[in-house]
Design a protein around this nucleic acid. Sequence first.
DNA 1: CGGGGCTCCTGTGCGC
DNA 2: TGCGCACAGGAGCCCC
Length: 268
Amino acid sequence: MPELPEVETIRRDLEHELVGRVVQSLQIRDRRLMKTAEQKRWELNAVGRAWTAIERRGKYLVVQLEAGWRIILHLRMTGQLVLGKDRPQSYRMRLTFDNGNELSFYDQRRFGEVWLLAPGQAWPSKSDLGPDALKELTQDMFISLVKKRTTRIQPLLMDQRLISGVGNIYAQEALYKASIRPSRPGRSVSRSEATRLYKALQETLQTAIAHRGSTSRNYRDAYDQEGSAQSLHAVYRKGGQPCVRCRGPLRAARVGGRGTVYCPRCQK
DNA sequence: CGGGGCTCCTGTGCGC
DNA sequence: TGCGCACAGGAGCCCC
């Protein structure tokens, strides 16, 4: 599910509802998510602490707790963080706060991950994250990064070590907007094309946030509501349908092991 | 460095 | 209707 715009939407919802609140208890239903020893560590160190800030790095959510502890969450494909009481019992983890509010972590495919980090403890991502696509990536950084690689441009956009936050939906949409084929080697993308792509990416991500993310299947915001950015999609999952620009059929292909859709006439 | 394939899971949609 | 297969917003790992 969630790429940068979806995670940012959830972040804002949680910030609004939970900053300043104190965790009162936690329930775990998925032993794969957290083993008994780890659960004890959470009860000792996360329960009783207030949430002081909620940040985002790429597709990760970072919850700052009192005294320098941090909770890191990654929703992978189908993770959901939903506020409110009387939600379904199929949660993997649930936190209860001092005002009675609850936060439930649902995850159909169970790829999502959660960490509790002690003060100063290392970031859990195996490989370091590249600059955040919206907050840190500048046009110059983007151009030099693209020109340096022989990798195809779509997998390049989605490589979290190079740029963090972009996934399969928004990579496809930005490439369409910039009229560049997903399979083009980075190095073959000219300066002016890269500039166009940078701007398309920024605009795509910002507009998606303004629409509270894309709900294709599983994604819901923290209030369990769907986003509406999917109504803006020009190519994602639209193989065979007419291109909105030239009316020719969009083509479905595989690039870097992932499905992608592009317009063979508009995207060079 | 790059690319392909497989893995972790569960659910859906399609062709036969 | 049933069955099997491909594929799905992610990402790490292994091998070539």
